[in-house]
Nucleic acid binder design. Sequence first.
RNA 1: GUCCCCAUCGUCCAGAGGCCUAGGACGUGGCCCUUUCAAGGCUAAAACCCGGGUUCGAAUCCCGGUGGGGACGCCA
Length: 482
Amino acid sequence: MPPRVRFAPSPTGYLHVGGARTALFNWLYARRHGGTFILRIEDTDAERSSDDMVSGILSSMKWLGLTWDEGPGVEGPHLPYFQSQRLPKYRAAADRLVASGHAYYCYCSPDDLAARRQAAALEDPVRMYDRACHALPAEEVARREAAGHPRATRFLVPQGTTSFTDLVRGHIEFAHEHIEDFVILRSDGHPTYHLSVVVDDGEMEVTEVVRGDDHISNTPKQVLLYEALGTPVPAFAHVPLILGPDKKRLSKRHGATAVGDYERQDYLPEAMINFLALLGWSPGGNQEVFSRDELIARFALDGISGGNAVFNVEKLDWFNQQHIMRLSAADILRRLRPAIVGAGLWRDTYLTSESAWIARVVDLLKPRARKLHDIVPALTAFVSDEVVYDEAAVAKHMRPDGVRDHLAAWLEAVRALPALEPVATEAALRALAVDRGIKAGILIHATRVAVTGQAVSPGIFEVLELVGQARVVSRLTACLPA
RNA sequence: GUCCCCAUCGUCCAGAGGCCUAGGACGUGGCCCUUUCAAGGCUAAAACCCGGGUUCGAAUCCCGGUGGGGACGCCA
């Protein structure tokens, strides 16, 4: 039976990189095994959820390429995929639990509870619910109900222990005395997380629950609910958390934590995916750079490591560069087109008569780009008549005595060349340097500044060829005294 | 405090009793290539938390300690 897994974010914030990695693991698992990846929005906390957050999360998921098979927009057999629209299901489940004696009504107000907890805090910092309302006499219950007293529904935790086999950690066991009678239905009729997640995972026939480590201690409560509801218990896989450099749970104070932040910082989604996949998971072997398909082909839950992982931006940067280098020139052009247009450097001929030429230019620029958009300004010297001269570069390479005389001689040599084929051009330049008794570097640096305006560029002979003889001649000429 | 999880270079991982003189990657230093900047190649420094067991043999298994993290809500 193909697996059914889900990612169930709460729209109380942006898609966090930790959440993104959890989503990624689920997605990889589904894709690896030909299963179904469900996206469900856990918006039962009406206070803190918002539509903007929902659309932000969906947008980040799409950016990462984590496509879902069931969920918002694509729908599916278990509609709706927003928990706030599934309220009757949770109430029905709560009613069933009360009817079967697995749950009971609690009339204690949150304020009461807080006060009681506070009072008890002196000797015991954490105090579990005292089960006061479970022992209420029938007449008292009737009286409160008649008076319309608000009530929550609590699960009656039985005696004993609950255990489950975690797919990444193995056997985990909890004694019930450490689990309080948790609320499953709030007094406003909304379910709490424990109820809604169990009802939905059950109904949606989720087979493996892959989620963050922080849910381990919630798991026994949920197992208890599955059992009380008579629903098959799914398998669980708890993945470690992502930490900041100080080893604390990654948060805003560590810098960018939202996937959207990385999108805005011009990281490639494939780099982000690669980086996140290898944070806490290993495919084995020494390969580091993986395409999406390669990750899918190798993904396995048992390769997930147990320890928390520190988010290391420098390695993300490296992955980004590696993936830029693996992109085809045509792909880069397609992604960068809006920016190139914006810079006034676009020509439709890049797609037709000039496609081979522009591809060579892009390929030359690729390994030098940290971020994709670094390529746009670097295009200028190749595609524009305008040359922006960097003053420091001019001062360093054009001003020294004699440089312009050498350059004048070089200009003549360039004019005499039938074409600017790199090997021949280099031979000509070196021959001239020998002739004039100077180091080739003098000519090379001056030529670079004259042609590109900058002190750094790709290999100058490739640059000359791609800029083209006519422009090289005119730029060299422009740099000589009139 | 209680419960749970985790523990190999600064960081991310490999290692599932002898193959470990502990391997790879990022980052850092050096060298090579070279006209600059990248990319690439080579190389160096850098780790098995501590203590007990088990075993002929332990990074690997067990126990304890320590350390880190997480959870203890009518948040998810």
